[in-house]
Design a protein around this nucleic acid. Structure first.
Length: 564
RNA sequence: GAGCUCGUAGCUCAGUAGGUAGAGCAACGCCCUUUUAAGGCGUGGGUCCUGGGUUCGAGCCCCAGCGAGCUCACCA
C-alpha cells in the first residue's frame, strides 16, 4: 500500500489524487476508531436495491407508514447531501438507485460520525425502514449504518458522468458505474448471448468449443496473430475462425453444433472491427444455404424479440424491422444499386466473361468522367491503390462524392483485372461491396457468390462459377456469412491449391492448405450448411451502438504511456 | 497506413484580437434535521498532451511527435 504513494507511481495522475488518497486513508483510520473495520468481508442484505424498487416502488406513504417495512441494503454512494445534523445519500446497486436518509437522532452519535466520514463512491450497508419524503421519493430511514469499502479516488463529475470516450474505454470500471447506459448495453449483450443459446439449444444443436490456438489458421481470409508454445517449441496461430474444426465435428457425427467464442484477426480497428471479436458459428447436417436463410431470419427476429420485446430497432436514426427481409442475388444487388442515370450497369452476360466485364466497367468509367486524366489512366493501368492527393482531387472534381468513390473503385478493379492480379469472381465481389453494401440498411440477404472468393463453399449444380453462399446485412454492414459446405475432398483439395496460387501471387490472406481437413472430408461429410454471425455487430444493431467499441467491455487501445 | 477534428484543474467545459488561466461539479473548513444537479459563506488545486520554433511575450501561430474520435484504406 505504501508503494501507492510513491512519486512516479502509475496509479496517481496528479498531486491532487495523491493528496486525496492520503486524506481518504486518514478517514479510514477515523472509521476504524469508530469500531468499524476498514475492509469488512460481508454484509447481510435483506434485499438488493432493484428488489426494493420492484417491491415497494409503487407503495404509498401511508401504506409504508402503516406496515413499517424494515430492510437491509448495500450499495455505492453516488450522491451525498449534508443537512446539518441529518443528510441524504443515494445508493446505487446493480444499476439502480435508492435514497437513504440519515439523521443523528435516529442512528446515534457513532453512526452519524461515520456518515460524516463518507465520500462519493464509498460502499456502505444500511438498515432501517422505508418511507416517502415530502417530495414523494422512496427512501430508507436509516437506523444502522455499516461501512463496507472506501473510494480512494475522486469520482467523475456527477451530472455528466465520464464523457471522455478514451477514458470510458480505458477505465471501463468507472464508465460502468457512472454511465448506466453503458452498463445497460452489456446487460443486453448478456441477454443476446442467452437468447442465441436458447434458440440453438431448442433446435437440438450441441454447444462445443474448438481450438483457439491452431497450427494452420483457416476458415476465413485474414491475417492471424502468432504465438509460441515453449515446451513443444511450436509456433501457433490464434484462430481466425473455428469453421474447419466445427465441420470435422460434423464428420464425427455431431449433426448440429454451434460455438460462440472469440476470433482473432490481425487487422486494423474501426467502428466495425476489433482485433478480437466474438463469433457465433453453427453447422447443420442435411441442410443447405436456403434452409439457413430461413433459419437466419427466424433467429434474428427471435433474439430481437427476446431482448428488446420488439423486432424494430433504431440504428443511426433509422428504424430497422428485423422481421422483414429482402433476398437478392449478388448480381441483382449490383444492378439494383448501380447509378443507372450516369452509366449502364454491367450486363448480365458480362458476369461470366472477363473481357466483357472489363469492357463494361471501362465504358462506365468513361461515362462517369470522359475527361482524360493522364495520372488517372496511369493509375488504372498499374492497378495501384490511389494516393491521397488523387483522392482529394477527385473529391473536388466531383460534387457527388459517391460517384467519385465509385470512379476510384471502378478504376481500381479495372486496373487490377488488366494487370492480371485478380480473378473475375473477386472483381465482381469487390464491385458488389463498392456499389451495394452501404445501401443494405434494412435486413437483406445477398446470395450466390463467385466461386473464386469462396474456397469452402459448394458450387451451384448448374453453374460451377457460382457457389451456394449468402451473407446478410443490416444497418449498412455485414452481420453474417453462410453457405452449403463443400464436402467433396477432391474439389476441396483443388480449391486449396488455387488459394495457394493466390498466396504465391502475393495475397497473404488467401487460404492455406489444410491436409488434415481434406482427410476429414474424405471420411465423408454429409451435406451440411454452416453459418457465422458477428455477435458484436449483432449487439451493435440491437443496442443502437454505432461503434463496436461500445459493445466490447475492454476494446484494444494503444498504450497510453510509454512503459519503462 | 492516409485525411479531418480534438487534447486546458480529479471530472465536465470556457478561454476574446498573441499579453502569462477561469466556471461548475468534486475536494477542504464552517452553517444547515425531508434534500435530490440541495443551498449559503470561505479556501486550496494547473507540465494548458510532449518537444522544438516564431515573437518583447504563446493555452492561442508554425513544425515534429504521442494519444483519441470520425472518415477512408486494410478487413467481413
Amino acid at each position: 500500500m505504501t508503494q501507492f504513494t510513491h512519486k512516479g507511481s502509475t496509479v496517481f495522475d496528479s498531486e491532487f489524487e495523491r493528496s486525496l488518497f492520503d486524506l481518504r486513508k486518514s478517514k479510514l483510520e477515523e472509521i476504524e476508531k469508530l469500531g468499524q473495520p476498514a475492509y469488512p468481508n460481508q454484509f447481510p442484505a435483506s434485499h438488493t436495491v432493484p428488489e426494493v424498487r420492484a417491491k415497494w416502488g409503487e407503495a404509498t406513504a401511508e401504506a409504508l407508514e402503516a406496515s413499517r417495512v424494515t430492510v437491509a441494503v448495500a450499495g455505492r454512494i453516488m450522491a451525498i447531501r449534508g443537512q446539518g445534523k441529518a443528510g441524504f445519500a443515494t445508493l446505487q446497486q446493480n444499476g439502480e438507485r435508492l435514497q437513504i436518509y440519515v439523521r443523528l437522532d435516529a442512528v446515534g452519535e457513532q453512526d452519524f460520525a461515520l456518515y460524516k466520514l463518507l465520500d462519493l463512491g464509498d460502499h456502505i450497508g444500511v438498515s432501517g425502514y422505508l418511507f416517502r419524503t415530502r417530495t414523494g421519493e422512496l427512501t430508507i430511514h436509516v437506523e444502522r449504518l455499516t461501512f463496507l469499502a472506501k473510494a480512494m479516488l475522486a469520482l467523475p463529475e456527477k451530472f455528466h458522468g465520464l464523457a471522455d470516450v478514451e477514458l470510458r474505454y480505458r477505465q471501463r470500471y468507472v464508465d460502468l458505474f457512472t454511465n448506466l447506459d453503458a452498463r445497460e448495453v452489456f446487460v443486453k449483450r448478456a441477454k443476446i448471448l442467452k437468447a442465441l443459446r436458447q434458440f440453438f439449444d431448442e433446435r437440438g444443436y450441441l454447444e462445443v468449443e474448438t481450438p483457439m490456438m491452431q497450427q494452420i489458421p483457416g476458415g476465413a481470409a485474414a491475417r492471424p496473430f502468432t504465438t509460441h508454445h515453449n515446451a513443444l517449441d511450436l509456433d501457433l496461430f490464434l484462430r481466425i475462425a473455428p469453421e474447419l474444426y466445427l465441420k470435422r465435428l460434423v464428420v464425427g457425427g455431431f449433426d448440429r453444433v454451434y460455438e460462440i467464442n472469440r476470433n482473432f484477426r490481425n487487422e486494423g480497428v474501426s467502428t466495425q472491427h476489433n482485433p478480437e471479436f466474438t463469433m457465433l458459428e453453427f453447422y447443420q447436417a442435411y441442410a443447405n444455404y436456403h434452409d439457413l436463410m430461413t433459419l437466419t431470419e427466424e433467429l434474428i427476429a427471435f433474439v430481437a424479440q427476446e431482448v428488446n420485446g420488439t423486432t424494430i430497432t433504431n440504428f443511426g436514426g433509422v428504424e430497422i424491422d428485423l422481421s422483414k427481409w429482402t433476398r437478392l442475388t449478388m448480381r441483382e444487388a449490383i444492378i439494383k444499386f448501380w447509378p443507372a442515370q450516369v452509366a449502364d450497369p454491367p450486363s448480365w452476360t458480362s458476369f461470366a466473361d472477363r473481357q466483357e466485364f472489363i469492357t463494361c466497367l471501362r465504358n462506365a468509367l468513361n461515362k462517369i468522367n470522359p475527361i482524360v486524366d493522364e495520372r488517372f489512366e496511369e493509375w488504372v493501368r498499374g492497378g495501384q491503390k490511389p494516393d491521397k492527393d488523387f483522392r482529394v482531387t477527385e473529391h473536388v472534381i466531383f460534387e457527388d462524392s459517391d460517384l467519385a468513390e465509385l470512379r476510384i473503385a471502378l478504376a481500381f478493379i479495372v486496373g487490377m483485372m488488366e494487370a492480371g492480379k485478380v480473378t473475375l469472381g473477386s472483381a465482381i465481389a469487390h464491385l458488389f461491396e463498392t456499389v451495394s453494401e452501404r445501401h443494405l440498411i434494412q435486413p437483406t440477404i445477398i446470395y450466390e457468390f463467385p466461386t473464386a472468393v469462396s474456397p469452402l463453399s459448394k458450387q451451384k449444380p448448374d453453374d460451377p462459377e457460382w457457389v451456394e453462399r449468402f451473407e446478410f446485412f443490416c444497418g449498412g454492414f455485414e452481420l453474417g456469412n453462410a453457405f452449403s459446405e463443400l464436402n467433396d475432398p477432391v474439389e476441396q483439395h483443388k480449391r486449396f491449391a488455387q488459394q495457394l496460387a493466390e498466396r504465391d501471387r502475393g495475397d497473404d490472406e488467401a487460404h492455406q492448405m489444410d491436409e488434415d481437413y481434406v482427410r476429414a472430408l474424405a471420411y465423408g461429410l454429409p451435406p451440411t450448411a454452416g453459418e457465422g454471425i458477428g455477435v458484436d455487430r449483432l449487439v451493435m444493431l440491437l443496442t443502437g451502438s454505432k461503434s463496436i467499441r461500445d459493445v466490447i467491455l475492454f476494446p484494444l487501445m494503444r498504450p497510453e504511456k510509454q512503459l519503462p
